[in-house]
Write a protein that binds this DNA or RNA. Structure first.
Length: 683
DNA sequence: GGGGGAAGGACCA
DNA sequence: TTCCTGGTCCTTCCCCC
């Protein structure tokens, strides 16, 4: 995907405060007036005239639309789960989900994927049973203090409610499919999906058959045998997305791209300046997008991003929904809203909430005393905000967010031979190097992810002694984790492998100048930012080649210096004797080579301990200097304290390990395991 | 007890 | 016979100080 990832503003993970003050009055049970308005603009392409009759009939609901609901019966839960994560997608309301689930169930039954889903479903059912048991326990104790705490929090949230802003969420209708249809108009009138293996999206004809994004291709073909699948073409979608964004920018220059086909805008100022009502402005915006790009978009208009997102789904495709910005209307709207409609509540959380009697956001109020104990503080806060219909009103460009990780993963036919797995790791390391180069980052932490042939997923991570970005290093530090997993797991057969770098360090430009002053930006900076200009413009683009050469040269110099220092150090430790240990003492201890300075070291623990500390502290300084300071190839590195020292090398109080007491045996063992590469690995 | 790393998992498009 | 990718954030567990 070419979209810039942004933190999911509506998820329980990133809750934010609102600002408007209004006294809180609990109104959960009070009947509230509704003045929601609803409007759709004319749908320009009624695709019915020349539509050929489908080979199989769409799976219409037998009588009336079935609302998507979590299964109340434990028996149904797996069938429900297999319906997939995008159950609430637009175009599904009139589909007979029972029939769909039957088809999916029968198509999947017996496969490894199915077995894994069964296990996951069982685990979730057990978790729900534990939640229910805990709730029964809570029923026996006095919950008045919990209740008071919840009410206090609700009152506090109410004080921050901001109803002054007009936030809209724009969502392109079946975007990839719509772009393909522009090139091949004949696809407009038949069920069509984009993506092979798994559907990325599908048009509304296909949705009538129960097809939806994230569904396995073969399952979709079972539901709709005449489905036409076209391969993805990212370049095309990106170009079209740019056209759409050009229109959006006229309404809010600081709009926020939530993904390739979604955006949030704050049109408060636009409406004021143009003396327009929000609905009118949004109608105009949508018409303009359609006129200029031939793409239809749906929109939600509300007081905050969370509500706008929910509203944009109300009148899909090619419609808009306005939720009046007054408290009563919002509370009434949330009261009957199924929890699953809220961004951040997925299949799992929906089932958990359902189990304790929360089906709609209005139901949250009645259970508020339990939420913190059952689901944790963050979930409690998130749910309270859902109940009140609160969300963020601040909209900002995606570039303002800071990227947290860069990774790549790939699915392949089952692989078990160690050699081919190593080769796969090498390929992935090469690819990640490309991604890191493109995004201009190095990673302080490297994570490996594997998916077994049984669909079980495992991750392992480690912190190299310096931030890495080159394929050689990614492979070198990834391989021990892979080898360890191979040893640990019986019947090691993989279907996916991936590498990801976290704790990113920008390679774009240094964070500290020649004089040790902190520059405006931290070492880690937004990935997508390409328009920023440095004050003096000097280090805007870091001369990568020169940098690499300088770094190599510097590394060579350092290595020579380290070799000398290491010899001096060993000389001090064992005056006059550099010969390795002999006899039983040596036999007990494995010989090893320091992976940092690459020099052979005496095998005794004391030397090992001291040497690693010594090398790490030197390495830390060296890497920090390299990452933050432009050093001409000829100059000596300057020792500048790092703002973000590598986690492994510093103790809690910021002292280098070498200044602290010696390492205990367990830590030494761990380090040995980390630093000792298995035989046969390329380093 | 608290900070922080590791692992796993939910969720999103 | 067949079920993705890339990203964020949260929770839990465990180690260490």
């Amino acid at each position: 995907m070419n979209s810039t990832p942004v933190p999911d503003a509506l998820s329980p993970r990133s809750l934010n405060a609102c600002t408007e003050a209004e006294p809180f009055r609990p109104t959960a049970s009070a009947p509230l007036g509704s003045n929601m308005t609803q409007s759709g603009v004319p749908k320009p392409n009624p695709p019915t005239e020349s539509m050929p009759p489908p080979a199989t009939e769409p799976l219409d609901a037998p009588s009336r639309p079935q609302p998507s609901r979590a299964p109340s019966d434990e028996h149904d839960s797996l069938r429900y789960h297999l319906l997939g994560p995008s159950l609430t997608k637009a175009g599904q309301d009139s589909v007979d989900q029972q029939k769909v689930s039957e088809v999916i169930y029968n198509a999947s039954k017996g496969s490894k994927f199915f077995n894994n889903e069964e296990v996951k479903d069982r685990v979730l059912t057990e978790k729900i049973n534990r939640i229910l048991a805990k709730k029964r326990q809570l029923d026996k104790v006095n919950l008045s203090s919990e209740l008071r705490r919840a009410d206090d929090y609700l009152a506090e949230l109410e004080l921050g409610r901001d109803l002054s802003q007009v936030v809209i969420h724009i969502d392109c209708d079946a975007f990839y499919a719509a772009v393909e249809e522009l090139d091949r108009p004949e696809l407009r009138h038949v069920p069509m999906a984009v993506g092979k293996g798994v559907l990325t999206t599908c048009n509304y004809h296909a949705r009538k058959f129960g097809c939806r994004s994230g569904m396995a291709g073969f399952v979709a073909m079972k539901l709709c045998p005449q489905l036409i699948c076209v391969p993805m073409n990212f370049a095309k979608y990106t170009a079209k997305a740019e056209e759409v964004r050009a229109v959006l920018a006229q309404y809010d220059p600081r709009f926020e791209s939530a993904s390739c086909d979604e955006a949030y805008l704050n049109i408060t100022q636009y409406c004021e300046e143009h003396h327009m009502e929000p609905e009118e402005a949004v109608s105009q915006l949508r018409a303009e997008v359609h006129e200029k790009t031939k793409i239809t978009v749906s929109a939600g208009i509300a007081a905050n991003a969370k509500l706008a997102k929910i509203c944009s789904n109300k009148n899909k495709p090619n419609g808009q929904f306005n939720l009046a910005r007054d408290r009563q209307t919002i509370l009434e709207f949330m009261r009957t809203l199924p929890t699953r409609k809220v961004n951040g509540i997925g299949r799992v959380f929906e089932r958990e909430l359902d189990a304790i009697g929360i089906k709609t956001c209005g139901d949250i109020y009645g259970q508020r005393a339990y939420l913190s104990s059952l689901f944790g503080q963050k979930a409690f806060q998130f749910l309270m905000q859902c109940y009140l219909g609160l969300g963020r009103t601040q909209i900002q460009p995606a570039e303002d967010y800071e990227r947290k990780s860069v990774g790549t993963e790939t699915t392949f036919k089952e692989l078990s031979s160690p050699d081919s797995l190593r080769q796969k790791l090498r390929d992935i390391a090469e690819e990640l190097e490309g991604d890191l180069k493109r995004t201009e980052f190095k990673g302080r932490t490297l994570c490996i992810k594997i998916k077994m042939h049984t669909y079980e997923v495992y991750t392992r991570q480690m912190t190299p002694p310096f931030a890495i970005h080159r394929a050689d290093d990614l492979y070198k530090y990834g391989l021990p984790m892979l080898e360890k997993l191979m040893k640990e797991m019986p019947n090691f057969k993989l279907r996916l492998m991936g590498l990801r770098c976290t704790h990113l360090v920008s390679t774009k430009k240094p964070g500290i100048d020649f004089f040790g002053r902190q520059r405006a930006q931290a070492t880690s900076r937004p990935a997508a930012r390409s328009d920023s200009k440095d004050k003096d413009g000097e280090w805007e683009t870091w001369p990568e080649e020169e940098f690499e050469e300088a770094a190599r040269q510097e590394r060579d110099d350092e290595m020579n210096e380290l070799e000398k220092l290491s010899q001096e150090y060993n000389e001090q430790k064992n005056p006059g004797d550099n010969t390795p240990l002999q006899g039983p003492e040596a036999a007990e201890q494995e010989p090893w080579t320091c992976p940092i300075c690459t020099l052979p070291q005496p095998p005794d623990d004391a030397t090992f301990n001291a040497h690693i500390d010594f090398c790490l502290s030197r390495q830390t300084i060296k890497e920090v200097v390299k990452e933050t300071t432009p050093i001409p190839a000829t100059s000596k590195p300057q020792l500048i304290p790092s703002k973000h020292p590598p986690a492994k090398t510093k103790g809690k109080r910021g002292r280098p390990k070498s200044e602290q007491g010696g390492l205990d045996e367990k830590t030494r063992e761990k380090r040995r395991a980390f630093f000792t590469l298995p035989a046969g690995s390329t380093s």
